[in-house]
Amino acid sequence: MKALTANRLSDGEVVFWKDGAWVERLSEAQVFSDEAGAGEAEASARTQRTVVIDPYLIDLVDSAGFWAPVSYRERIRALGPTNHELHGKQAEGGGAVEALRQAHGAARSSGRVNLIRRK
């Protein structure tokens, strides 16, 4: 399963694709079960150049009934920094946040290529 993520242009906020628009919580994101649908959404997202920066697909796994990113890096993006638990989306708490915290299966993000150039 996959989700589509990016950073919002205006404030850098981590956002997720949902039916042509963007939401801030992974728990509200559109989840793709097929490559074609995910690829189509990514292509569409890339045209939203004044809304988001650098959209890319991430892999998801099931964690306690919620979808969580496979990649550790993406889980930190979806939660917020682990040194400030009141910063980022994790501050809201709740089941979806806890599921992300408990998720396993860390792996490199598929979106991480040529990072030093992309920064």
Binding site: N7, G12, V14, I53, D54
Partner: peptide, 19 residues
């Protein structure tokens, strides 16, 4: 973004994970 990124970086503005 490709045009803007070098301009923002020249002013110390990076895009990190959360903001």
């Amino acid at each position: 973004e490709d045009q803007f990124k070098p301009l923002r970086l020249m002013n110390g503005l990076y895009l990190q994970l959360h903001a």
